[in-house]
Amino acid sequence: MLLPLLILAQTSTPTEDLLMVLRPQLELQMTRECEKAVNSPDGSFLNLRSICSEISQPASVCLVEEISQQGSLAQVAREALEGSLGPASLGVASACIERLMQSAKPVWDQEFPLR
């Protein structure tokens, strides 16, 4: 999936348009990875599998927007092909974690008020 990204990144296709086409695949992969991470063989882990798809949607949108804003498509794709998290990937991930945490803050504050 990433090799076509590198090739298309060199074309005149706007980055965000290209990424929006690939976003459903990214979202599906993120859901699979989340489900693997929360899967417990003994079943004692909280059943978080159901929220994986809910989390992957805003996360994939954020990744598309951040990669587009930062202009880092080629760098992120190269790092992914190399199997490493480099500066571009970490920058995008950090920005998305911060954005997602800020958007969750009102719900978090309501569920866990400071006393």
Rank of each mutant, 00 (worst) to 15 (best):
residue 44 S to V: 07
residue 53 S to D: 11
residue 24 P to N: 09
residue 39 N to A: 09
residue 69 Q to T: 15
residue 24 P to Y: 12
residue 75 Q to D: 12
residue 70 Q to E: 02
residue 5 L to T: 04
residue 109 D to R: 02
residue 47 N to Y: 09
residue 13 T to M: 15
residue 43 G to M: 08
residue 84 S to Q: 15
residue 17 D to A: 11
residue 17 D to S: 13
residue 94 S to Q: 11
residue 96 C to V: 03
residue 21 V to S: 08
residue 78 R to C: 00
residue 21 V to R: 14
residue 54 E to Y: 08
residue 88 A to S: 05
residue 56 S to R: 09
residue 21 V to Y: 14
residue 82 E to N: 03
residue 74 A to T: 05
residue 101 M to Y: 08
residue 17 D to H: 15
residue 62 C to H: 11
residue 3 L to C: 10
residue 27 E to F: 04
residue 12 S to Y: 13
residue 35 E to Y: 02
residue 57 Q to L: 14
residue 31 T to M: 10
residue 40 S to P: 01
residue 6 L to W: 01
residue 86 G to H: 07
residue 68 S to C: 10
residue 27 E to G: 04
residue 68 S to L: 05
residue 101 M to I: 13
residue 8 L to C: 14
residue 75 Q to A: 10
residue 111 E to Q: 15
residue 35 E to K: 13
residue 39 N to C: 07
residue 110 Q to H: 12
residue 72 S to D: 05
residue 53 S to K: 07
residue 81 L to C: 06
residue 28 L to D: 10
residue 92 V to M: 04
residue 74 A to P: 00
residue 51 I to T: 10
residue 114 L to E: 06
residue 11 T to G: 05
residue 42 D to A: 04
residue 66 E to S: 14
residue 6 L to F: 00
residue 60 S to A: 15
residue 96 C to A: 07
residue 95 A to Y: 02
residue 106 P to D: 10
residue 73 L to P: 01
residue 64 V to M: 05
residue 67 I to K: 03
residue 50 S to M: 13
residue 92 V to S: 06
residue 68 S to I: 06
residue 47 N to E: 12
residue 4 P to V: 02
residue 98 E to R: 14
residue 50 S to W: 08
residue 66 E to D: 11
residue 106 P to G: 08
